[in-house]
Amino acid sequence: MKLTLRVWRQQNSDADGAMSTYEVDGISADMSFLEMLDTLNEELIVKGEDPVAFDHDCREGICGACSLVINGDAHGPERTTTCQLHMRSFEDGDTIDVEPWRAAAFPVIKDLVVDRSAFDRIIQSGGYISAPTGSAPEAHATPVPKPDADFAFEHAECIGCGACVAACPNGSAMLFTSAKVNHLNVLPQGAPERETRVLDMVTQMDAEGFGGCTLTGECATACPKGIPLPSIAAMNKEWLRATRKARR
């Protein structure tokens, strides 16, 4: 496959960026999108140019490090992570636009790499449970109803990649925050912090400069793990409950 790539190049967070055009040849349809970028970078290094910086880690679709907006879609045209997107999803001769996540809360560090530490701070504000240290408790000691376990697991699938924020026209982190809140709030282990968790995480989310939710549904369409849009309604319900019940 021969492709034309238009890639966002930006030297650092203070510099102005622009789209640069590159030609890549000899791309196999079985390559992943990141392997295709590796090929481009090898050529750039040989030519003595600065390789394109992009985030990646496990390349198995489970770590949430990769973060590219490909032809206007977060993680590209398939519902998966960029590392699990293969070149067979494209045609020979295609022109592909590659851009970083766009949000005020995710500043560009270099080229396609953005700073997602805002997500870490949201987690730090309440995405934990208070558990005693020591040996693991007996698994049957705390019964969890099957529907609750399924609900928690569905939300625990969130890998925190930030595609929801990238896809949202408001740069909102509601889907991410709701996944984390719902995951823990439905379980008995998360019950002691049920109210403070949702209040604190929403407060931190707002403080990071993410936008509000206007229910456009772009986030759930982009999510590689299929976190559903009603998660946001479930978190809103938890938030409203917490404002009434929180101990002062």
Partner: peptide, 11 residues
């Protein structure tokens, strides 16, 4: 919301 998404996607 507008402040939270200052730069648009080219595509």
């Amino acid at each position: 919301d507008i402040r939270a998404r200052p730069s648009k996607y080219v595509h």
